[in-house]
């Protein structure tokens, strides 16, 4: 397929998804914003004021980057998982793409870009809401941008694997509930890994969200539990692995074709 046709195909997948995300905005944008307001209120304002400083910053400043990241990753994941699964399972309109000459990598890019757009937009909304509670410092904007891109991409890719492979509606709710949520809560959104007992600390180091949250927090506050270089390395490796898995699944039709 010539490059201009590939671009049109990619743009079509992305445009269709963005139109859908905006059309159902009470389902796509509002929930994360409302949840974040509650977190800021309860953990930041009510409980946080009694906890004292973390590395020289107030608790609410400490949790803002993690809560933004939480919104980004859950929305990026849910978007690709649910969009792809619905197209595959309910209306079966994924056939529209599968019978077309659109190459597998363009299908992946289109769906992932849609998930990234939603994740990043919701992240920005949550960040804007946080301003009403405490304005976070922004020390390294490029690092913030990089982690926003990497985190939304990784979880959109993860959501796509989930959406391709899920065989029932349970299949796309089990992963976010029993895998994603524990990883997020144990990934250092609400605490510093330095405060954990050694065994839990070791477990945290195999949690990808830990690297996302810390790198992102470094962009705002200038400190991290782990080196930013290591975080970027781990995230890039994850990105490559997830792209390869998605490409294999769509190319071979595993979970899609009979």
């Amino acid at each position: 397929m010539p490059i201009e046709k590939i671009w049109i195909s990619f743009y079509t997948i992305l445009r269709k998804d963005i139109v859908r995300v905006f059309r159902i905005w009470p389902q796509t944008f509002l929930p994360s914003v409302v949840t974040s307001v509650l977190y800021f209120l309860v953990f930041g304002t009510i409980i946080g004021t009694r906890l004292g400083d973390f590395n020289g910053v107030s608790y609410i400043h400490f949790i803002i980057p993690g809560l933004v990241m939480l919104a980004v990753v859950t929305n990026a994941f849910t978007n690709t998982a649910s969009t792809f699964f619905q197209a595959k399972f309910f209306s079966r309109n994924i056939d529209e793409l599968l019978v077309s000459p659109t190459p597998p990598w363009v299908i992946i890019a289109g769906y992932v870009a849609g998930g990234m757009v939603r994740g990043i937009l919701v992240g920005i909304l949550v960040l804007l809401v946080s301003v009403f509670f405490a304005f976070p410092p922004i020390l390294h904007p490029f690092i913030i941008f990089l982690f926003l891109i990497l985190s939304s991409m990784i979880f959109a890719l993860g959501g796509l694997v989930n959406g391709i492979y899920a065989k029932s509606f349970d299949g796309i709710t089990i992963i976010p509930t029993f895998v994603l949520t524990p990883l997020i809560y144990l990934g250092g959104v609400f605490y510093s890994v330095a405060s954990l007992p050694p065994l839990f600390k070791e477990f945290t180091l195999i949690n990808p969200i830990f690297y996302l949250v810390n790198g992102f927090r470094y962009g705002f506050l200038g400190f991290s539990d782990v080196s930013v270089g290591l975080s970027i390395g781990v995230l890039l490796a994850l990105t490559v692995i997830l792209i390869a898995i998605n490409w294999y699944l769509i190319k071979t039709g595993l979970g899609l074709k009979q």
Binding site: P2, E4, K5, I8, S9, Y11, S100
Partner: peptide, 9 residues
Amino acid sequence: NQAGYYGIP
């Protein structure tokens, strides 16, 4: 949209 998947503007 189907046209788009075939690269038709």
